[in-house]
């Protein structure tokens, strides 16, 4: 079966520095795929290339939306990428702090709705219906991530773990078929991580593919179906969690070279 996301020989240069070096990544429908690697390996850069924040130097990013024609994402603006059905969260939380939790999610639905200026001023029945739909649907998404009690709270007042969950809710509101999560468990305590584990699996079971950057190995090993390991912008390994756990190249990248072999 054709993968949903097929990244071929993706390369990204910043001046003389090659942040990503001919990276190949495939994500299939219904999978949770993890992208791991040491700090500075180029994982977030990879996300930024796919979602249009950076324009990759070379390579192909091919997206296969279910039931639609294949689309090349290179050079598309971030909002166009989101419109294709690819939503993301950020490593350093980027919510809209002075808007309410519900409004944050409502923003996510922007690209799936189309009220114009005149609709906003005259509030014709169509616009009102759409507004109502936005509120209701956003609220149901909030319920999914169990933030409904905070709906009218400012986003900046939420506890850390809840802010992370809100980022996921906001991404879900864009109605994606694939979710890119950039270190969703960063800074969470074990209890929160466990809840996140359940949430991600639940989202997968609803039919979304998930590409995940994560440092928490316990989480990665427990939920991923497939793992890519990156170091210095190059792919050094790929496989199922069991394969990766025993891969010498991965152990070397994470723990350093064994003294005896040096």
């Amino acid at each position: 079966m054709e993968p949903l996301l097929n990244v071929q020989k993706l390369t990204m240069d910043f001046g003389g520095i090659r942040a990503i070096d001919r990276l190949d990544v495939q994500v299939h429908a219904g999978q949770i795929v993890a992208l791991i690697g040491p700090n500075g390996a180029g994982k977030t850069t990879f996300f930024n290339c796919i979602t249009g924040i950076y324009k990759p130097t070379a390579g192909h990013i091919l997206l296969q939306p279910p039931g639609k024609k294949q689309k090349r994402l290179n050079g598309l603006k971030p909002n166009k990428v989101t419109e294709q059905g690819l939503a993301r969260t950020f490593q350093n939380i980027r919510l809209f702090p002075n808007m309410t939790v519900l409004e944050n999610v409502m923003i996510g639905m922007h690209c799936r709705t189309n009220a114009k200026i005149f609709g906003a001023i005259f509030r014709n029945p169509q616009t009102r219906k759409e507004e109502q739909y936005i509120v209701d649907h956003s609220y149901s998404i909030l319920k999914k991530v169990r933030l409904q009690t905070f709906a009218n709270e400012y986003a900046k007042n939420l506890p850390y773990g809840a802010q992370r969950r809100l980022e996921i809710a906001r991404a879900l509101a864009t109605d994606p078929f694939m979710l890119l999560l950039d270190e969703p468990a960063a800074g969470m305590n074990p209890q929160e991580t466990l809840e996140l584990d359940n949430l991600i699996t639940q989202i997968r079971d609803e039919g979304l593919a998930i590409l995940l950057i994560e440092h928490d190995m316990k989480l990665v090993m427990s939920i991923s179906d497939y793992i890519f390991v990156v170091d210095y912008g190059k792919k050094i390994a790929e496989g199922t969690p069991e394969e990766i756990a025993q891969n010498p190249a991965v152990i070397k990248a994470y723990l350093g070279e064994d003294v005896e072999h040096a």
Binding site: T51, I53, K77, P78, N79, T82, E83, A87, R88, F90, R94, L95, F96, P97, N98, M99, I107, G108, H110, C111, R112, R170, A171, A173, T174
Partner: peptide
């Protein structure tokens, strides 16, 4: 509030 997040949300 946040231009980059705003774009990433499809605006």
């Amino acid at each position: 509030e946040d231009e980059i997040a705003c774009q990433a949300m499809g605006i």
